[in-house]
Design a protein around this nucleic acid. Structure first.
Length: 242
DNA sequence: CCATTAAATTCAA
DNA sequence: TTGAATTTAATGG
């Protein structure tokens, strides 16, 4: 790859990602500027599904820029959203090791650019590069932690608490933009993450509005009393940053 | 869970 | 930029 192109690519990444822990950022020379680098850049439009449950695993996705929801479909056909992911996150890692098929699906929530690395190439990198392997291991450990917390939250919290927890998660992860959560989600998506139904979410939102804890204009949700929301779930405060 | 109405979002002219 | 068409929210049974 020509030097100039490398340089532009690096600058582009540095701009897209200011997170020091971002693996693509940290290992960009290894991942992107390597001669043997086996990657493709995938440009998807909003609402596009790029991982289908049950499809064979050939590699791993890194989000270059955008937002993605990762979900699993239950027996009843109900969608359980596992997590939301934005810039620099890894998608599809569960199927990476021994698994042959994806156990999750992933859909973009806005126009998103993804890097796709082949399994073979990443395996080579992991074998050759201890530091990269270590960071990947930390990532997996953290993911495991997170998913265990989530199991707890779904089994021990009330519906109202889970909805509040979801709001706080979105707030933590995506922040606010002029008074509203910086990610428009449908009530159904809140429900799918909180493990409840659309109607429950709508009713709880109405209550929270009456109580002056949140405001809502369509898909734009504003948190007006963050502290009180936190207080309600404080006895369960096992959520780790994610 | 479903039906109805209100509201918001999208899309194309 | 508008408003008609479509999708989504909210409520009550």
């Amino acid at each position: 790859m020509p030097i100039l192109e490398n340089h532009l690519l690096s600058k582009e990444i540095a701009k897209a990602c200011k997170n020091e822990n971002c693996l693509v950022h940290k290992y960009q020379k290894l991942l992107l500027n390597n001669l043997e680098s086996d990657r493709t850049l995938l440009k998807t439009k909003k609402g596009q599904q790029f991982i289908i449950e049950g499809a064979p695993v050939n590699g791993l996705f890194f989000i270059k820029k955008g937002i993605v929801k990762v979900f699993r479909t239950g027996i009843n056909g109900k969608e359980q959203i596992v997590r939301f992911a934005n810039d620099c996150e890894i998608i599809g890692h569960r199927g990476f090791g021994t698994q042959e098929y994806y156990s999750i699906g992933a859909t973009t929530l806005k126009d998103t650019e993804l890097y796709y690395f082949s399994k073979e190439y990443l395996q080579k990198l992991l074998l050759d590069n201890p530091s990269f392997s270590y960071d990947m291991m930390l990532f997996y450990a953290n993911e495991l932690n997170r998913s265990e917390s989530k199991v707890k939250s779904i089994s021990q919290m009330t519906v109202r608490e889970r909805v509040i927890d979801t709001l706080l998660y979105i707030n933590r992860k995506f922040g606010e933009l002029k008074g509203y959560l910086n990610l428009p989600l449908s009530r159904k998506e809140y429900a799918d993450y909180a493990g409840t139904t659309e109607e429950q979410v709508i009713r709880i939102f109405s209550l929270l509005k009456k109580e002056g804890l949140i405001t809502a204009k369509g898909k734009k949700i504003g948190i007006t009393n963050l502290q009180n929301l936190k207080n309600e779930i404080s006895e369960h405060n096992f959520y780790l940053d994610s």
